[in-house]
């Protein structure tokens, strides 16, 4: 049976290990500790956990002050509130001064589900990606989330880690070693490069299996670090395959699709198709329904691949 775990569970487990390994790790949350899983750190290290209440701006500023005086501060919340409500605190007080704050929101994307558009952020990667000094990580499964959250403690400066709500099939295992800033090739292929992040990495691997049945070789890259972008590995792959499909649970504007388009436009202009949310808000529904509704299914990737292959020079 396939193991299914949420990326946010990886965050909760990582915090426990971080608390044991680093005496200067402090965790903040904004009344969502049970959802983000930071409550587990709270139970284990009550003196180093501070609930800020429903006040994300002060949470980010407090995190900056903790970091400026020597602590490593992890902050939780939902991605919409962390990056939207507190955008300017992240920009001006955390990132501008390159402070050691790890912004680790959960419930990103449309897979928040029934709560609907107000809670479904498909803009957060665009918002975080434009901020200088800020590193942007999108784990693809539980193990990658856990490893990335741990690795962030050793990265000097601010890090954004985007996590989700639902339990999703795991791709890696306990031995997974996260390499910050390095694209991870999960499958070799000669016809098309699929660049994917988050839950779409697993979906892309399934799509690649489908495509293989039709004789199409899809190379699947896990772009877990969106910034800084490992341009070299991506370009090497695209040079070989000659076309790209991006897949993300985010707006096709400004996120992974945006980043890869910028790269290709500058260095290797070749056809690209983007699988993602098409410049619209989310809506209430069950998670499987929503993935279909917003065009984030395995079949959507298959269609995008065929479309990009048809455009190949």
């Amino acid at each position: 049976m396939v193991e299914k775990k949420a990326t946010r569970e990886g965050y909760g487990d990582a915090l426990l290990e971080l608390g044991r390994e680093y005496s200067n790790v402090v965790v903040l949350d904004a009344d969502l500790a049970k959802s983000t899983q930071s409550y587990r750190f709270k139970e284990a290290f009550p003196d180093r956990f501070f609930d800020c209440g429903v006040a994300e701006q002060n949470m980010m500023g407090t995190a900056a002050g903790l970091a400026a005086s020597g602590m490593i501060c992890y902050t939780g919340s939902f991605a919409i509130f962390a990056t939207g409500r507190a955008f300017e605190q992240i920009r001006n007080t955390i990132a501008y001064s390159n402070l050691n704050v790890k912004i680790c929101p959960t419930h990103a994307g449309i897979t928040v589900g029934e709560d609907g558009a107000s809670h479904q952020t498909v803009e957060d990667l665009a918002l975080m990606r434009v901020i200088p000094n800020l590193k942007v990580i999108i784990p693809a499964d539980y193990y990658e989330a856990k490893a990335a959250a741990k690795a962030a403690a050793e990265i000097d400066g601010p890090v954004f880690i985007r996590m989700g709500r639902p339990k999703i099939p795991t791709i890696f295992d306990e031995n997974y070693e996260f390499e910050f800033g390095k694209v991870l090739k999960l499958r070799e292929g000669k016809d098309v490069t699929i660049c994917a992040v988050g839950i779409m990495v697993g979906v892309s691997l399934e799509a690649a299996d489908e495509l293989a049945k039709e004789g199409i070789g899809a190379e699947v890259l896990n772009i877990h670090t969106l910034k800084p972008l490992d341009e070299k590995t991506i370009l090497e792959s695209v040079k070989k395959t000659g076309s790209v499909v991006t897949a993300e649970e985010h707006s096709i504007i400004g996120g992974l699709g945006g980043a890869i388009s910028e790269l290709l436009g500058k260095k290797m202009p070749l056809p690209i198709e983007m699988v993602g949310v098409k410049d619209r808000f989310g809506t209430s529904g069950s998670i499987p329904e929503l993935l279909d509704y917003f065009g984030l299914s395995k079949q959507d990737i298959v269609v995008a691949v065929k479309s990009v292959l048809a455009r190949k020079p």
Partner: peptide
């Protein structure tokens, strides 16, 4: 001690320093 200029943010940062 902390970069500032965008109003409203320094008191929060001071909270963090006091916690440390």
């Amino acid at each position: 001690e902390i970069s500032s200029g965008s109003l409203g943010q320094g008191l929060a940062a001071a909270n963090g320093m006091a916690l440390t």
